[in-house]
């Protein structure tokens, strides 16, 4: 494993921890899109179908368990916790996320590297992850004033995607057996581009030491 991949995984892990920290300690999920969280839970469930059937490394298994466990506990907090769920911006979080799921599934059935159940589900998770942040970005745009933890959460997610792209470039040149993965690369690039606008405003707000505010 190279340093970019590790750094990517760590920023991904930190993004989840920041979110759980916000929810658990402040008992608030204000500014967090339940739609995006539902999509991520689905992404992990579809992608990690091999968790008990194929062993890669202890690191791999533990991280998968953390991502699965954390995404479903975030869902539990936002839907069931009697205090946290009251802070959910239900009226603002109106993105119709179900309409993202079906096209991704159809695309995975049509464009995949191998037509098997596990491979199609894996490809579906790649497509869905690429667009899963959209409800969250729309919610941020609507709320405009973004609190620090929510801003950090989205920033860390974007950083994770960016680092994964560098990881792929590195692997492409460093590993002789590494083949081209157009599906993952294009999806990953699209996903990272979705953050570009947010990144611009986030970095400006950090530089000027002001609260993150997105344009209407």
């Amino acid at each position: 494993m190279n340093i970019f991949r590790l750094a990517g995984d760590m920023t991904h892990l930190m993004s989840v921890l920041v979110l759980l920290l916000k929810i658990h300690t402040i008992k608030s999920c204000a500014g967090i899109s339940l739609k995006t969280q539902e999509l991520y839970a689905l992404v992990f469930a579809a992608r990690y179908l091999d968790i008990f059937t194929h062993y890669y490394s202890l690191y791999n298994t533990v991280m998968k368990l953390i991502f699965l466990g954390s995404s479903f506990s975030i869902l539990w907090y936002m839907k069931r916790h009697k205090v946290v769920r009251r802070s959910y911006d239900k009226d603002q979080d109106t993105f119709r996320h179900h309409f993202l799921v079906l096209p991704c599934l159809v695309l995975a059935l049509l464009i995949n590297e191998k037509f098997t159940f596990k491979e199609v589900m894996w490809t579906f998770s790649i497509y869905l992850e690429a667009v899963a942040i959209l409800p969250q970005l729309v919610l941020l745009q609507r709320t405009r004033n973004v609190d620090n933890l929510t801003g950090q959460y989205v920033f860390l997610l974007g950083a994770y995607r960016g680092l994964y792209i560098i990881n792929w470039i590195y692997r492409y040149f460093a590993e002789p057996t590494y083949s081209t993965h157009w599906i993952t690369w294009i999806s990953g690039l699209l996903q990272t581009l979705l953050y570009a606008d947010f990144f611009y405003y986030y970095i400006n707000s950090v530089k000027n030491n002001v609260r993150l505010q997105l344009p209407a």
């Binding site: 091999d50 194929h54 890669y56 791999n60 994964y164 990881n167 692997r171 590993e175 057996t177 993965h181």
Partner: peptide
Amino acid sequence: DADDSLKDEL
């Protein structure tokens, strides 16, 4: 299997 190289990623 060439296309398994990505499966060790998260």
